[in-house]
Computed example of a mutant assay.
Amino acid sequence: MSNEIKLIISDIDGTLLTSQHLLTKNLVQTLQEIQALSIPFIAASARSPRGILPIAQKLGIQNNPLAAYNGALITTDGNLPLFSHPLPAAGKKLLKLIKKFFPTISLNVYSNADWYTDSHNKWIEIEATITKMQPIFLSFADLLRQDPIHKLLLIGDAVEITTLMNFLNTQELTDCAFYLSKENYLEITHKQVSKETVLHEMANFYAVPLQNVLTIGDNYNDLPMLKAAGLGIAMGNAPAPVKESADKVTATNDQDGVAKALKKYVLDSP
């Protein structure tokens, strides 16, 4: 298998990171072996570039492209855009609608590497703890002035977010796509954005045929890239439909699933 895999794309949360948001020593060592083979390893996540970069540095892959916001922004060093797919003008219209009809929802705007919000609440504190980032606090008027907008993250109670999703389904959201990344996290990006797009852009960038790409992930937003790659691997902690759609299933993120998959399918070692 080592002669076939020429490019690897991996999700981060629930995949590279344990349930305690940590990297294992085994995974770091395995990535060093992958790097020694000159096989590009791309971290793809809903996180911002600044949320990905510290993880990439610990893994030794910081010089590779980083796919942030599920591919809305791919950078070469955490800042310089390689590919950019910002929200259309409808994104700012959405912010106004949500502020008016759902005032308790936490509004989070991601523009390039920065995270902006207009209020401090428990959701902001939770997200800051997970991502090890701090937002830039702005007035709502200044929030609307941010450009480009690569992602909107809307956080609230699960019931609130479900109600918001139902509301958005009644709106004409041209060129916008939205999905739940958690039961209380609603993410909105350009409709062109997906991890499958990351797969195609990175395969073209490195001139690697899709059949020579390995992808690995743990959730529904990883499914498109798992299906499109030559070898799509689901984590053992992934939902059943994700595992059923993948080519292979590895151990969970708390059992070194990524390291085990890379050793088996790339390094040909036990």
Rank of each mutant, 00 (worst) to 15 (best):
H190E: 02
Q29C: 11
K93P: 06
A67I: 03
E33M: 11
M202L: 11
N204L: 10
N219Q: 10
L199T: 03
S194M: 01
L186I: 00
P40Q: 07
T215H: 02
A177Y: 15
L180H: 00
Y116C: 03
V193F: 03
L80A: 15
G236P: 07
I105S: 03
P54E: 09
L143R: 02
K6L: 09
Q62G: 14
G217I: 03
P239G: 01
A229H: 03
P88Q: 00
S269E: 14
K260R: 10
N184E: 02
V249H: 08
K99V: 08
M165T: 11
P239K: 03
I98W: 05
I42Q: 08
H120M: 10
L31I: 13
Y206S: 09
A113C: 13
H120T: 13
E201T: 07
K100W: 13
L37K: 15
D268V: 12
Y110L: 02
Q57H: 12
V213E: 05
T197A: 15
I74W: 09
T163E: 11
D142E: 10
V159S: 14
F101A: 14
I155D: 11
S84N: 13
K227F: 02
P239L: 03
G257Q: 12
E125C: 08
A158F: 05
G217Y: 01
P241E: 05
T75Y: 04
I105V: 06
S10F: 12
A229Y: 05
N221T: 04
L87Q: 00
V242E: 03
D175A: 13
T170S: 14
G230R: 04
P103I: 10
A240P: 10
I216R: 00
L16T: 07
D114G: 05
A177K: 13
S269L: 13
Q255P: 06
T24R: 15
L214R: 08
I136F: 09
F101S: 14
N3C: 11
S10M: 12
D254M: 06
I52W: 10
P103F: 14
S111W: 03
Y179S: 05
E125N: 10
T252L: 12
S269H: 12
I188L: 01
L173M: 06
L97P: 07
D247Q: 06
Q211T: 12
L107I: 12
I149H: 04
C176P: 01
L154Q: 00
G236H: 08
